[in-house]
Amino acid sequence: MKFVLEIDMDQMRGDGEAAAELGRALRYWGGNLHHYALVPGDGSAVLDSHYREVGNWRITDA
């Protein structure tokens, strides 16, 4: 089983925004993983602080 996180950092606009937004996304989703069974097929969109979809995470078989 794999946990896959994909973030399009080009979607995070502004000088220095990418690092701040990536850190925020990792803290937010890391803190919410206990709400998921974490079985293959689980996943969700990752949103930035402006509620724009900038990526996703998912659990895969391989």
Rank of each mutant, 00 (worst) to 15 (best):
M1C: 12
F3T: 11
V4K: 11
L5Q: 13
L5W: 08
E6V: 12
E6P: 00
I7N: 02
I7E: 00
D8T: 02
D8N: 14
D8H: 02
D8M: 03
D8Y: 04
M9R: 13
M9L: 09
M9Q: 14
D10T: 13
Q11A: 13
Q11H: 05
Q11E: 15
R13S: 10
R13Y: 09
G14P: 10
G16Y: 08
E17Q: 13
A18V: 08
A18R: 09
A19T: 09
A19N: 09
A19L: 14
A20L: 06
A20I: 02
A20D: 11
E21W: 05
E21D: 07
E21F: 01
L22T: 15
L22V: 15
R24W: 10
R24N: 13
A25S: 07
L26P: 05
L26Q: 05
L26D: 03
R27V: 08
Y28L: 06
W29H: 03
W29D: 00
G30H: 01
N32D: 09
L33I: 10
L33R: 08
H35Y: 14
H35A: 09
H35I: 03
H35G: 01
Y36H: 15
Y36I: 04
Y36K: 11
A37W: 09
A37K: 14
L38T: 03
L38I: 02
V39Y: 07
P40K: 09
P40N: 10
P40M: 09
G41L: 00
G41M: 00
G41S: 04
D42R: 06
G43R: 11
S44G: 10
V46M: 05
V46R: 01
V46P: 01
V46Y: 04
L47Y: 14
L47Q: 06
L47E: 05
H50I: 04
H50S: 14
Y51G: 00
E53S: 03
E53A: 07
G55R: 00
N56V: 06
N56C: 10
W57K: 01
R58G: 10
I59H: 04
I59M: 15
D61E: 15
A62I: 04
A62G: 10
A62E: 13
